[in-house]
Structure formats: C-alpha cells, structure tokens
Nucleic acid binder design. Structure first.
Length: 129
DNA sequence: GCCATGACGTTCC
DNA sequence: GGGAACGCCATGG
C-alpha cells in the first residue's frame, strides 16, 4: 500500500458520520493539494470491505460522481441518507451544512454553484456533444 | 519513459 | 446558468 493511498484513507476515516468531504479537500488534507483525481483513484481501488467510509466523499459540486460507472451512486446516496445527510431536490448535498471540515467550504460555496457540473461526459469516454 | 485515462477542480467563454 | 478548456497527480499499457 502506497503512503499516498494510506494518507487518503486516513483522512477519509476522519470524516465524521453524517458529514461529507470533497475529493479536493481530502487531497489537500492528505498533503496533496490538486490531487483530487488521485483521491478518486484511491477510493476506486478500495476492496469495499475496507474500513473506509468512501461514501462520505463527493465532488466539489456536492454531488455523487459515480454516475453510470456502477450503481454505486444509489448505494452511496442511500448510505449518506442513512447517516442523516440530506440531499437537495437537485440531487446535491449542501456542503456548507454537511461539508467537513466546515471551514473548508465557507468560501468554496460560490465555486460549487458555478461548477455544478461540467465537461465530464465528453472528455470522459470520447462522447461528443 | 512517453501516452492515455480517470469516483476531480477552477476558471473562462 | 451551462459548456468547454486547462491543470494536477498517480496508475497502467
């Protein structure tokens, strides 16, 4: 297990129940600001039986990123709901309310609104618009 | 060692 | 408010 992954997992384990953190924040806390993608990679490598609350990690928009990859998105939403995390009608989580650490989202609220969702699909699998 | 890919993020148009 | 581009980092071929 690489130290990077270990750092990431350690940070994720620190996320309190009923709270969520973004990939970017986790990456920052893990000592690798900007390595948000790597966080996703690390979480994707989780066996599932690991003691890491991966479902508490979402993107900066406050949304679940799994999408159509698996049906994991449904599972993740269910797990979060079970912990008391409420989803907005739009399908997003209020990071200013459930984000952890809260101080990391005070100024990030504006950004999340703007970057609600972006070019994911096209660049992801070559799907053109 | 270079190229392509991905559970992301921020900024510009 | 939605879409497109660019940047970052680690992994796999």
């Amino acid at each position: 297990m690489n130290p990077f992954y270990h750092r990431i997992y350690k940070v994720v384990r620190r996320i309190p129940r009923g709270r969520v953190a973004t990939y970017g924040v986790v990456a920052r806390l893990a000592g690798h600001p900007g390595a948000a993608r790597t966080v996703g990679w690390a979480l994707a490598a989780l066996p599932g039986e690991a003691d890491v609350p991966w479902w508490r990690v979402i993107n900066a928009a406050g949304r679940i990123s799994l999408g159509g990859r698996d049906h994991g998105a449904v599972l993740q939403r269910a797990l979060l709901l079970r912990e008391g995390v409420k989803f907005a009608p739009a399908g997003g989580v209020g990071l200013t309310a459930f984000g952890w650490p809260a101080q990391a989202y005070e100024s990030a609220a504006a950004a999340q609104t703007r970057a609600a969702s972006s070019r994911r699909s096209r660049r992801l699998k070559g799907l053109r618009t």
